[in-house]
């Protein structure tokens, strides 16, 4: 199991579109993926959970990945967040 904290840096935060992308990426891997923020833990493969995290710009979330493909899964998730979900700002 690997854990990693990351800061949301895109302007709009984990809004609907970013949540969609995150859920889509998470769904590509067989590992169990959880996101934790302020003691709230949700399944990254459930868009409803991700949206309800309400992670705005500047908030920190922790990915918890467990499974066969946990390494590439974590890399893909971090990449997505750090790439501002491809939104450019």
């Amino acid at each position: 199991m690997i854990k990693q904290e990351v800061e949301i840096i895109n302007k709009l935060g984990l809004h609907a579109r970013a949540s969609t992308k995150l859920t889509q990426v998470a769904a590509q891997f067989s590992s169990q993926i959880w996101i934790e923020r302020n003691a709230r833990r949700v399944n990254a493969k459930s868009i409803m959970g991700v949206m309800m995290l309400a992670a705005g710009k500047g908030s920190k979330i922790t990915f918890e990945v467990e499974g066969q493909d946990e390494e590439p899964a974590m890399a893909a998730l971090l990449n997505l967040v750090n790439d501002r979900f491809g939104e450019g700002e």
Binding site: R17, T20, T23, Q24, S46, I47, M48, G49
Partner: peptide, 19 residues
């Protein structure tokens, strides 16, 4: 582009276990 993204979001909400 937002239009497509909105529909994607709706598709995912629909597939979400909670719904």
């Amino acid at each position: 582009a937002e239009m497509g993204a909105f529909v994607d979001t709706h598709l995912m909400i629909l597939s979400d276990g909670s719904l």
